[in-house]
Amino acid sequence: MGRIKNLNKWANAHTYYPLDLVRIALGTFLFIKGIDIMQSFKTLSELIEPIQHLTGGMAAIHYVIPAHFVGGVLIVFGLLTRWAVLAQIPILIGAVLINFLGEMNTTNLILSATVLLLCIFFLFYGSGKHSADYYLEMQN
C-alpha cells in the first residue's frame, strides 16, 4: 500500500495535460473497440476458436466486451484506473499473441502492442492529478 501511495505522489507531482489526454484517448479507444468487437462477434469467435474447447474459452469471449466497455469508461474519467488497466492487460496480451499464433497482421500487432504498453504505463503511473481518483482523494 505504501508503494502505491508513493507512486500516486510521484504521479501527482509530475502530471501533465498531454498525459491526461493520452489516458482519455486510451479509454475512448478501448470503449470503441468494445463496440467494434460486439458488432463483429463472429470475428471474435473465429479468433478464439482454437481455445474455445478449453476450460474457460467461452468465458474469455464474454469477458472481453464488458472489460472494454467498463474499463474504457473508468479510464476516461480516471476512476479506478489501475484496476481498469489491470483488467485490460490479459486481453491485450492475448491480442498480441493471436498475431503470432494465427495469421500475422502487422497493423493489429502494432496497435495491440502500443495499447498494451500504454496500459502498463498507466498501471504504474495511475490516473494523475486531473482525474476522478484525485478529486475523490482530496475530498477525504
Rank of each mutant, 00 (worst) to 15 (best):
C119V: 10
A13K: 13
R82A: 04
L79F: 10
L101K: 10
T114A: 08
L74Q: 00
M138C: 03
L74W: 04
Y135H: 09
G126L: 03
F69Y: 13
I120W: 10
D133P: 02
K129Y: 12
Q88T: 02
L136E: 04
I48M: 15
I61W: 09
K129R: 15
T15W: 06
P18A: 06
S127Q: 05
Q39S: 00
E103G: 03
L109R: 11
M138N: 13
E46T: 12
F31Q: 02
G126C: 01
T106I: 10
H14F: 13
Q39C: 01
I75R: 05
S127L: 00
T81H: 04
A84T: 02
G94N: 12
T81V: 05
G128K: 11
D20H: 14
A95E: 05
H68E: 12
L44Y: 03
T43S: 15
G126Y: 11
F41R: 06
S127Y: 07
I51A: 15
E46W: 03
H130E: 07
H130K: 14
H53N: 02
L116I: 10
S40M: 13
T107D: 14
G34S: 12
V70K: 02
A59R: 01
G126D: 09
Y125M: 11
K33P: 03
D36E: 14
G128W: 12
A13L: 11
L26R: 01
K5T: 12
K129L: 15
